[in-house]
Computed example of a mutant assay.
Amino acid sequence: MFGKKKQPPIKSLIAHGTEIHGDVRFADGMRVDGAVHGHLLAHSEAPTLLVISEAAKVVGEVRAGHVIINGEVHGPVCATELLELQPKARIQGDVSYRALEMHQGATIAGQLLPLGEGALDKPTLKLAAIGG
């Protein structure tokens, strides 16, 4: 689906109970279970993966190739490939994406902005089915 490629490995973790104040730049994959008050930015031309778990809270910009959110984000989100919004995702900010998968229960308080040529004509959207 969506021409999914092999995901980059998650090499970085911001654990539950950890709070970071400042920007975080990463390559490959990163998982956030704690709190970040700053930007989370992938700095690689290679494929990148960012997972923001149910327990996580990010106040700042989020930018990576493949972004999976099930927590809280206050700031703009940009997924240059695929944005997956899980049921407990809460976003307050504009969302840019090439492809979007949004589960029932996820909320966005902001604009949806498709990326790429002709994106305003035919954005790739997928509504995830309940239970699968």
Score class of each variant (00 low, 15 high):
Met1Arg: 04
Phe2Leu: 11
Gly3Lys: 02
Lys6Asp: 12
Lys6Ile: 13
Lys6Tyr: 04
Pro8Gly: 06
Lys11Leu: 09
Ile14Glu: 04
Ile14Lys: 02
Ile14Cys: 04
Ile14Val: 13
Ala15Leu: 04
Ala15Ile: 03
Ala15Pro: 09
His16Glu: 14
His16Pro: 01
Gly17Tyr: 03
Gly17Trp: 04
Thr18Phe: 01
Glu19Phe: 01
Glu19Asn: 11
Ile20Thr: 06
Ile20Trp: 05
Ile20Met: 04
His21Cys: 05
His21Tyr: 12
His21Val: 13
Gly22Cys: 09
Asp23Thr: 12
Val24Asp: 12
Arg25Trp: 11
Phe26Gly: 02
Asp28Trp: 01
Gly29Lys: 02
Met30Pro: 00
Arg31Asp: 12
Arg31Leu: 14
Arg31Met: 14
Arg31Lys: 12
Gly34Ala: 07
Val36Asp: 09
Val36Met: 06
Val36Glu: 07
His37Met: 07
Gly38Glu: 08
Gly38Ile: 13
His39Leu: 05
His39Phe: 04
Leu40Trp: 02
Leu41Asn: 04
Ala42Arg: 03
His43Leu: 08
Ser44Phe: 02
Ala46Trp: 00
Pro47Ala: 07
Thr48Val: 00
Thr48Met: 00
Leu50Lys: 00
Val51Pro: 00
Val51Ser: 09
Ile52His: 00
Ser53Met: 08
Glu54Ala: 14
Glu54Cys: 10
Glu54His: 15
Ala55Gly: 06
Ala55Tyr: 01
Lys57Met: 10
Lys57His: 08
Val58Met: 09
Val58Gly: 08
Gly60Glu: 12
Glu61Trp: 04
Glu61Ile: 14
Glu61Arg: 15
Val62His: 00
Gly65Lys: 00
His66Gln: 02
Ile68Lys: 06
Ile68Val: 13
Ile68Thr: 05
Ile69Ala: 05
Asn70Asp: 15
Asn70His: 14
Gly71Leu: 13
Val73His: 07
His74Pro: 10
His74Arg: 15
Gly75Cys: 05
Pro76Arg: 13
Pro76Ser: 15
Cys78Lys: 15
Cys78Met: 14
Thr80Arg: 04
Leu83Asn: 09
Leu83Cys: 08
Leu83Tyr: 11
Leu85Cys: 08
Gln86Ala: 13
Gln86Phe: 09
Pro87Asn: 06
Lys88Gly: 01
Lys88Trp: 13
Ala89Thr: 07
Arg90Tyr: 06
Arg90Gly: 08
Gln92Phe: 00
Gly93Leu: 10
Gly93Cys: 11
Gly93Thr: 08
Gly93Met: 02
Asp94Met: 01
Val95Tyr: 03
Val95Ser: 03
Ser96Leu: 04
Arg98Asp: 08
Ala99Gln: 07
Ala99Glu: 03
Glu101Tyr: 10
Glu101Phe: 05
Met102Arg: 04
His103Ile: 02
His103Val: 01
Gln104Lys: 10
Gln104Asn: 12
Gly105Met: 07
Gly105Gln: 11
Thr107Trp: 10
Thr107Lys: 12
Gly110Ala: 10
Gly110Ser: 07
Gly110Glu: 06
Gly110Asp: 02
Gln111Val: 08
Gln111His: 11
Leu113Asn: 15
Pro114Trp: 06
Leu115Asn: 12
Gly116Glu: 09
Gly116Cys: 10
Gly116His: 02
Glu117Phe: 05
Gly118Tyr: 03
Ala119Trp: 01
Ala119Val: 02
Pro123Tyr: 05
Pro123His: 03
Thr124His: 14
Leu125Ile: 03
Leu125Pro: 02
Leu127Glu: 08
Leu127Tyr: 09
Ala128Glu: 08
Ala128Trp: 00
Ala129Trp: 06
Gly132Val: 06
Gly132Leu: 11
Gly132Met: 12
